Computed example of a mutant assay.
Amino acid sequence: MPARLRSCLRTTYPGLVALAVSMLLAAGAPAGAASGGTLYVTSGDTDDIALFRVDGAGRPVLDPPLVPTGRQPRGLVFARDGRTAYVATGLDDSVHQYRVGDDGRLAPLAAPVRTGGFPFGIVVAPSGRTLYTANADDGTLSVFAVGRDGRLRPLGAPVRTGRDSPRGLAMTPDGRFLYVSHGRPAITEEDTEPPGFVVVFAVRPDGTLHRTGGPVPVERGGLGMSVTPDGRFLYVACEVLTSVSERQLFGFAIGRDGSLAPVPGSPYRAPDVPIGTAVTPDGRRLYLTSGGLNVNPEIATKVWGFTIAADGSLRPVPGAPFDAGHGPVGIAVTPDGRRVHVSTLRSQLVSFAVRADGRLTPIGAPIPTGGTRSLFQSVAVGPR
C-alpha cells in the first residue's frame, strides 16, 4: 500500500469511526432520549413519582417505572448540586430523601426525616445548606441542615409561625428572608375561613429563623408564592373562588429589611382558584395555575400569564389565560425560560413553549403521569 494512502487512512479512519458510531447511537436511541432534560411529577393519591425525559423538541416522554414514596407527596425539590432530591409527604409528616443518578433516576438515600404536622410547602435555600417545610396542621416550619452528602439533619425543633395553616414558602435569592403564606382555601360562598397572611422570617447565617415585622394580610387561602430573580418583588396566589372574592393574586415590593409593600394595582383577579406560581428566569413574566381544587376540575382549566413591569405591577400577556388540562395545580419553568410545564389534578402533564411576548403555545397533547392526582408543587424540572 502506498505510504500516502496509509497516511490518509490513518488520518481519516478515526473520524469515520466516530461518525459511524454517532449515527448508530442516534438511530438506536429510544424516543425522547435526545435530551432536553428531565421532569418529575408527584402523585398524591398513588404515592409515587414519575420521571419524564424531554426530547429535543421539548416534548416530555414518560420513562417508567414510577418511584414509590411516602403518603400524599406534594413538593419535590433538588439540592443545589442536583445530586439529591427531597419530597414532602403530607400524610406521614416526612421529607423523603433520594439520590439522583446520572440517568436522572431516583434511589433512596436515607430514611425519611420527620417534620411538623402535614408538610405542605418545601424549599431549599439558595445557598443549598438548608431546607424548610411549612407544616399546615401544627402551624410550624421545620428547618434542616443539608449535609455534604445531601442528607438532612434537623436544626432544632419546628418553629412556630404565629398563624394558622402555613402552606407556601419562598425565599429571596440572597437567602436572607423566608416568606410563608397562610390560610385555608375559600372555594364556596359559605366559607368563613380567617384571612390569609404572609409571615416574614429573617434567616440567620446558620439557616435558623426569627420572625421579623408583623404578618401581612392577603386574601384567604394564601398558597403559591414566587420571588423575582432580582429579589425585588414577591407574588402570592390566594386559593379563593372568584364568586367569593376577586382578590386572588397579590404583588409586593420587597424592602431591604424584607418588609412587603403592595405594588401598584395589587391585588389582581385570576379566576378559578389560583394555586401555583412561577416566575421566568429573566424576571419578566409570572405564570400561575388555577386548578379549582374541590371545585369541579372539569371547569378549572387555565394558566394565567402576566408581564411584570419595572414597578412590579402586572398586565396580562397576549392571549392569556391558556388552556392547561383539567385542574392545573403544579407549575415549573425551565432554567432557560423557554418552556412551562404544568401538572393537573386529572393526573396529566401539560407542556408549553414560551413565545417572545409571553404567550404560551402547547407542545403536543397532555400526557398521563401514570399516577393519580398531582397536588401543589407537584412538578419539578430536573437538574439534567
Rank of each mutant, 00 (worst) to 15 (best):
F52D: 06
D47F: 13
G291A: 04
P73D: 09
G156V: 04
H182W: 03
Y235N: 03
M171G: 04
L152G: 02
T192D: 15
A31W: 05
G116W: 04
R10K: 10
T372K: 12
A18L: 15
L169A: 08
V218L: 10
G58T: 02
S43L: 03
T228E: 09
S22G: 14
E189F: 10
T12M: 11
G196D: 01
N296C: 01
V67Q: 13
N296R: 03
V17Y: 05
Q72T: 15
Q377M: 14
A270M: 12
R105Y: 11
L293H: 11
S259W: 11
R204E: 15
D149V: 05
P274H: 04
A85T: 08
G312T: 07
G156C: 08
R153S: 15
V113N: 02
G224A: 04
H326D: 14
I308K: 04
P383A: 14
R74V: 04
A88F: 01
V350N: 00
F177G: 11
Y132N: 09
S313C: 14
D103A: 02
V199M: 08
G283P: 05
L9D: 01
L152R: 03
R204Q: 13
V21S: 12
G75N: 15
P316G: 01
Y13R: 12
G183A: 11
G116R: 06
Y268M: 03
P316K: 02
P64G: 09
L349S: 01
V381G: 04
G382D: 09
R59E: 12
S226G: 15
T11S: 07
G337Y: 07
R176M: 06
L169S: 05
G15R: 14
S378I: 03
Y86L: 10
D174G: 10
T161C: 07
V333I: 15
V333K: 00
P217T: 12
A380M: 05
L76W: 10
S266Y: 06
F252W: 09
V240W: 01
V317W: 06
T172V: 10
P215N: 05
A34F: 07
A27W: 15
L155H: 05
L241C: 02
G15P: 00
F118L: 15
G358D: 07
E193F: 10
V354I: 15
G319M: 11
G364T: 05
S43K: 03
G330I: 12
R4F: 08
D137F: 10
P64D: 09
N294E: 12
T212I: 15
A33C: 06
R148Y: 11
V317G: 03
